[in-house]
Amino acid sequence: MSVPVNNRIVFGEAEELMEGRKRSQLKSKLGQGIYISEIHETQDGDFVINFGNSTPKDVSDSRDKDRVLQFIDVEDIYSVTASKQDGNYVLELPSREELHRGYIERQKQILDQLDYTTATLIYENIFEFSSVENQMTPIIEIVKWTQEDGSKPITEIEAQQNSDKTRLYISTLSDLGFLNVTDGTIYPGEKMQSADLHPADRTKEDYQKELIGQVIKDGYYVLRDKLSMSMLDQYPQLCNSYYYTALQRNDPNLELDIDRIQDNYREQYNKKKGRNKINDKMDRLARADVVHKDGEYVSSKQTMWNDLVSESATASI
């Protein structure tokens, strides 16, 4: 029997699509890892079919070489509705391009969410890395000066920072609720005065550090994408070139060597970084207690692992 090449599958019961020949037919046309993640019937009697994608990934431990092949399932990459025609349901198959695009978008969402979580978790650990501090300095100054002086004319901040981005930083902090702007003067916003952030027994430095941490948490995407603060991305991405695989394998003791971390960085983020650079940055992250490193081998830091697992519980990693 030759295989039909048209783009529709006819079925009587929804379960038929989940197994046997019809499932195989679907995979031959759409890709071997494409599967139906959910089917539900609408009030009109149609079926809404959600597709997922499963891809194998070598997540072997670099030291033990234990040959573990983890399947990574990403659900809800695309959905179609199958309607009844002449007594049977007709599923018009999406194109591979549509499914691939849906998969890439979902995958990006998952990684983005993980990077965001990581950025908020590691901020205090990497705050004093000079590259991070340098990029965050204008934001830190605005927050610090406003908090110390109670109010500040925008022109004064502009003059001191000598940057054409000062107004952009101020309007962002204002939009995020950290500043109020009235008649060209900035005042502490609601969040800056929050009791949670400002207990009496905290030092000024700790308060400011935590306040900046809160700014990152509430404004990560704006700071990263609209203010081009690439450092917010870089260290979380390096971190997750290890942790993403460890989470997928659900193994905090997984050890990955620098070569594997370099591969992951390239594959996950489509970015290249030299092996020595990656090694140096992993050393810094290890000194900052974000990862554990033993020579070439990187593994989890238990507190970081616990926080990531609890924060990522709903992220379908």
Binding site: Q32, R67, Q70, I72
Partner: peptide, 18 residues
């Protein structure tokens, strides 16, 4: 005996292999 496959979050293997 050859390698150690692990199921993904769907709970089943989903890849049709050759």
């Amino acid at each position: 005996n050859s390698y150690k496959p692990r199921r993904g979050s769907s709970g089943d293997y989903q890849l049709q292999h050759v």
